[in-house]
């Protein structure tokens, strides 16, 4: 069976199940709008939705790029300097677990209504899975291969390039599967807290306008973005890690 068939099957069946639930349970539209109503919003407000989606994507990708820089830098530092990991790791766990809604008012006071607080939230949410996976991946390098390269007088840089980094790549891509999709949700959450553009802002706006149909439309877009992000990571992994299937 083609791998995309089940995905398409679920995508086709979901609106039918949704409509069936409405027929059977008759919930008020304030709780569950019909698929037709939501589809109507997606079509009639497509330009506005596209504009807000681009804003969210920009924040997600920008924050995610920063998270990668930070996480890869720290992972490399930990690889070369075990003491740094012992000193910093507990504090990174603390930073990762700060509930960012608690930081919201501080971030707005310090950074204003700019791109910066949204990037901070995306980085906070996404950097740790990358750091943890890459650190683990670098440590999992085959010690026999490392010793052999050392015997051959390879430099630390050569050992990193030839053994440690390739060993870390599968874990790095596994981290992307979690963190890249998470970056979109993080950007939306940040906008929900303090933005005037983006899908998170639209959620707040739809809520205050009692537009459940618009709320569901935004949710569908966010889900589509997350699926696309996941697919891109899988695609990139299939290309980069093709040696694993040899």
């Amino acid at each position: 069976m083609k791998p995309w068939l089940p995905v398409l099957g679920v995508a086709a069946l979901a609106p039918l199940a949704w409509q069936a639930a409405i027929w059977i349970f008759a919930p008020p539209p304030a709780l569950l709008p019909s698929p037709a109503l939501v589809a109507g919003v997606l079509w009639s407000e497509r330009r506005e939705l596209a504009g807000h989606t681009l804003v969210t994507l920009g924040e997600a990708v920008g924050g995610y790029a920063l998270a990668n820089l930070l996480a890869l830098g720290l992972a490399f530092l930990f690889y070369r300097l075990r003491t740094a990991e012992a000193v910093l790791a507990p504090w990174l766990v603390v930073a990762k677990n700060i509930p960012f809604p608690a930081l919201a008012s501080i971030l707005v006071v310090l950074l204003g209504d700019t791109l910066a607080p949204k990037l901070v939230v995306v980085v906070l949410v996404t950097f740790f899975p990358i750091l943890a996976n890459v650190s683990q991946g670098l440590r999992s390098a085959d010690p026999v291969l490392v010793d052999r390269l050392r015997t051959l007088h390879a430099t630390p840089g050569q050992i990193f390039r030839k053994v440690a980094w390739p060993a870390a790549l599968p874990a790095y891509f596994a981290a992307h599967e979690i963190a890249f999709t998470g970056s979109i949700i993080a950007a939306i959450a940040a906008e929900w807290l303090f933005a005037q553009r983006g899908l998170g802002y639209l959620i707040v706006h739809a809520t205050t306008q009692f537009r459940t149909d618009r709320l569901f439309a935004v949710t569908l877009i966010a889900s589509a973005l997350a699926i696309a992000a996941y697919g891109l990571v899988r695609l990139a992994a299939a290309r980069v890690l093709r040696w694993r299937r040899l």
Partner: peptide
């Protein structure tokens, strides 16, 4: 005003 918005909304009541 929230009540007016709810009554006016296509997903209100």
């Amino acid at each position: 005003t929230h009540v007016a918005k709810f009554v006016a909304s296509p997903t209100g009541a």
